[in-house]
Design a protein around this nucleic acid. Structure first.
Lengths: 160, 160
DNA sequence: TATTGTTATACTCTATAACTATA
DNA sequence: TATAGTTATAGAGTATAACAATA
């Protein structure tokens, strides 16, 4: 009978690799984003807001898997630079509707253009096709799940 | 003449997606790793040490893209739990050779086994084949480049 | 009473710089 | 003089809890 070598290997997970690669990308990106007055977490937020025009802060926090309070500070930065706008929801005046401004969209496009060099360097071991595949898988994984769970919900095993 | 729609799209980058997905994975992983006395960054270090048996702290810092000083604290945690060992290099007594202990290897395997559920949840939008592809691409990207650059080196544009 | 956004505070992770020892 | 590891300190990023406005 043939051996089953796969069973003898530890079950290697993507988590640690994902952590490591994200860190490399973030460190390289920081210096590129600095002249644009942005930090990596700002870019993540802007990217989400582009795809989802008009989000409440709460919904944004869920998508980013950050606390509401953390998002407040993040949006303050972006609003101070007029990259996003907050307006009260007419239906529910407790809510703020957050929207990317034209200026914000332009800044984001500029940042993504500048980040091409960073991606080239960090993903230098991947060819063009592999990079495209990676992007598609990341997009599918990130948007497909749509986990509306914050850290607290995860820890408490709530269904969310 | 046919239009070139691709040119009209902003050049979307993987960086933000990578950040977001890594964050989701990390948040979920934390609660699973807690009973094992580990944190996500410990797992990243253990994973590297398994593949590269006998590394100096400096080399480990380069791979993890962390400062040497940060690695010291990280290894202190792991050594206190006897998951890694430090011994002086005979050739150069300034160096510490870091090695995964048997106990450390067992703990890592245990953690990776426990993290299967986390990966199932965070990558629920991906089927088995897609997850395997993602793992392979991440592994290739992370190990292929072998960027021996720390944050300082990146910022200063040194060749490293 | 529950929810949205906000503020104030504390904690974790990390980088920077100064120190020791070896080279 | 340069390098490996360590220590001490400061900064960024985040979560938690308490608060105000609204539902």
């Amino acid at each position: 009978m043939a051996s089953l070598p796969v069973l003898n290997q530890p079950p290697r997970r993507s988590g640690a690799l994902l952590d490591n690669l994200a860190r490399r990308m973030r460190l390289h990106a920081e210096s590129v984003l600095e002249p644009l007055g942005l930090r990596p977490r700002h870019l993540v937020a802007l990217t989400v807001l582009r795809d989802r025009d008009g989000s409440t802060q709460q919904a944004l926090a869920s998508t980013l898997m950050m606390d509401r309070a953390t998002v407040v500070g993040l949006l303050n930065d972006l609003e101070a630079d007029a990259l996003i706008e907050r307006r009260r929801s007419p239906e529910d005046r407790r809510r703020h509707i957050v929207q990317l401004t034209d200026r914000g969209a332009r800044r984001l496009a500029k940042a993504e253009f500048a980040l091409a060099a960073v991606e080239d360097e960090v993903l230098s071991a991947l060819d063009t096709g592999q990079r495209a595949t990676l992007y598609e898988l990341l997009l599918l994984a990130a948007s497909g799940t749509a986990q509306e769970c914050g850290p607290a919900a995860i820890a408490s095993d709530s269904p969310c």
